[in-house]
Amino acid sequence: MTCRSVLRPAMVCMYWCVAALCLSQAGFSQWKADPSQSATSLGQSSLIQPAELAKSLEAAKDKPLVLNVGPRMLYVQAHIPGAEYIGPGSDAEGLKQLHARVNSLPHSKLIVLYCGCCPWSHCPNVAPAFTELQKMGFTNVKVLYIAENLGTDWVYKGYPTDRGSK
């Protein structure tokens, strides 16, 4: 048995193993969120904390326009009173809806975006929606900082909550 006769099958085997590994990773990678669209890319100055938003919603006038840019299923389960459902900021249709909703508003209007689908560092929705509003020229846009999810950081903290869809 020559050295070559042993090495050749081993090389072929290794090739197929590497190919199989690459294919399996390719399958997973299509589901991975784009890290550049993570909520962590938003600066501190563009954030609003839950307590601050809850207080501003109590005010008689100059209430912000609150827009939910997350999944509908979660919005129906619980949402901030008065918040309008737009659609996920991570998909083109959601951004189109966002564009249509705010198009006629003055660019100085205070708009608060929120999602709360999952931990802040994993949220794929708020950053693209924020960028879209910035591109449109809105100068007073805030994103609600939700560290874990809407349940933990809003509902279970006792802030006002509505259910159902609009």
Partner: peptide, 12 residues
């Protein structure tokens, strides 16, 4: 179903 389980207010 989600409501029956106390509401799904974030994932997972």
């Amino acid at each position: 179903m989600a409501s029956q389980f106390g509401g799904i207010l974030g994932l997972p």
